[in-house]
């Protein structure tokens, strides 16, 4: 089986598996974030649970970090190998005649998402890890009151219009990445075309609705606080 994952097709399977995991994570992340629009209390409760439950923190979080890193690193490795497969370029190449812009530029939409993830980690993940595991404060409470801190931290971040702008742009790139990535992951996994046709409709809805939802959440908090 180790030989399988060294083959070009095995690597595509691995990319697809990490993509499925990341798409599921994105759905879960959105489900919690949307709570912040409708119920700050529910958002705080869900955030505190995710931030302190051992299985999430010590099992799912490392798997997620591995999944993100694997998807990016393997994406870059495959991109380099693919570029090396055509040393001499065409003088004239009409890529738009036979493929979508999204499918031809996954590396660039991926790079935009990577840049966003760096910003997102600095904004939320690093302060969260610092509070919990360096300062040792697992209470999830605000420093000067008994309320949870998660909703306050979220809304505070979206005051800055530059940050909101960066988030909106990043989610547009995420949507472009998912538009091709969703169906591509199923194709790489060997799913037959009959099943893929039905999945493609769901994929298009997912690729537009989820990033649009994240954009709506950022804009909602920006204009309401």
């Amino acid at each position: 089986m180790s030989g399988f994952f060294k083959s070009s097709i095995g690597r595509k399977y691995a990319m697809a598996l990490s993509a499925f995991f990341l798409m599921f994570f994105l759905l879960q992340h959105f489900a919690i974030n949307i709570l912040s629009v409708f119920s700050p209390d529910a958002f705080n409760e869900a955030s505190h649970f995710m931030g302190t439950f051992w299985a999430v923190q010590y099992v799912l979080q490392p798997v997620l970090i591995f999944g993100v890193m694997y998807h990016f690193i393997m994406g870059f490795i495959l991109e380099i190998k693919n570029r090396n497969a055509r040393v001499a370029k065409y003088a004239k190449n009409n890529g738009a005649a036979n493929s979508s812009w999204m499918s031809r530029n996954m590396i660039y939409s991926g790079l935009a998402i990577l840049a966003f993830l760096v910003l997102h980690f600095i904004d939320f993940w690093l302060p969260e890890i610092s509070t919990k595991y360096i300062q040792g404060d697992m209470s999830g409470l605000l420093a000067d009151s008994e309320g949870f801190r998660y909703y306050e931290e979220l809304t505070h971040k979206f005051v800055n219009p530059l940050r909101v702008g960066a988030y909106v742009i990043a989610f547009v790139f995420l949507s472009l990445h998912l538009t091709h990535g969703f169906s591509s992951a199923f194709q790489s996994s060997g799913v037959s075309s009959m099943r893929k046709e039905k999945l493609q409709i769901f994929g298009k809805v997912y690729a537009i609705a989820i990033p649009l939802g994240f954009i709506a959440i950022a804009l909602f908090h920006h204009f309401n606080h």
């Binding site: 595509k12 495959l78 890529g95 036979n98 493929s99 979508s100 499918s103």
Partner: peptide, 10 residues
């Protein structure tokens, strides 16, 4: 030395 498929459909 062929490249990998990225499912562009070209």
């Amino acid at each position: 030395g062929f490249g990998n498929c990225t499912n562009t459909g070209a």
